[in-house]
Design a protein around this nucleic acid. Structure first.
Lengths: 138, 138
DNA sequence: AATTACCCTATCTTTTTTATAGGTTTTATA
DNA sequence: TATAAAACCTATAAAAAAGATAGGGTAATT
């Protein structure tokens, strides 16, 4: 399951996507809309900004805004950013690889090989579905 | 990511699958092969037994054995048993459904709809890949 | 009857997740 | 230029989940 952080990130991105007509959106507007703690959401939006998905403006009249087109924000990007690996095992993660301590030989591990297939199937979906798909359905 | 419990369950099932020629396999044999705590593994094997995947025999010469054909042990079954939901959000879980508290209307939630699609794609893989696929690759 | 090994429950420790706190910097505008 | 509004930053605390351990109970086999 996704962490709340990631789920909230998707909610926030959806909200920002729906309000692209306005220059900026306040953290508070989003936090009230979804009942998310202001401070918790703040951390999430900051991470999205550092990742180049959001832009922000400080001071009065400031707030956050989408920097990318919704179709260019893949689900995989958001998940990796907030939650980490998408793969089901560390030994098959593309972005967060770690060997399994109990594994003598990765090359001879059937579990490893099957999980690589699972990962690739998952990525086919998560790399191609984007924020635009979410917005289309709202 | 899968929990260690689930990963260990797959290791144990693989080991049992590879030793189907013998009547039973000791917990200890598996725990030594993979360096898993005997007691921790015991709990896992018990759950697999309760789920009807493994059988066991008590007393001298006892141990665990596979009750099902490897091709009938889907990855999804093992994951759900030890880890819980496969879906990425509680509101799209088939087996562990819970509404999202922040969600006013599930029917109007784009995130919900997209995550249903993701879930279905994941299930396509996880329901069809089985222990037999792991064993084939060992 | 003794041994072997599964069965069960409870508890403890560690890690991760979730949330909070408090101050700093930047910007618009009156 | 003062003030208010808003993002930015860092640290810490609380809660939950995962991982691991302990110790005995029970059943079956030799």
């Amino acid at each position: 399951m996704l962490s709340k952080k990631t789920k909230y990130a998707f909610h926030a991105l959806t909200y920002l996507g729906k309000h692209r007509d306005q220059k900026t959106v306040l953290i508070q507007d989003i936090s009230e809309e979804y009942g998310i703690s202001h401070k918790f959401l703040e951390n999430i939006l900051l991470e999205l900004k550092k990742a180049g998905i959001l832009g922000s403006k400080k001071g009065k009249g400031g707030g956050y805004y989408l920097i990318k087109a919704p179709k260019d924000v893949a689900l995989s990007k958001v998940i990796r950013l907030l939650d980490g690996p998408i793969a089901l095992l560390p030994c098959v993660s593309l972005n967060y690889y770690e060997p399994c301590v109990e594994c003598k030989s990765e090359a001879a591990c059937g579990l490893n090989k099957v999980m690589i297939q699972v990962r690739d199937e998952m990525l086919k979906v998560l790399e191609n579905k984007t924020l635009a798909d979410i917005l289309d359905k709202e």
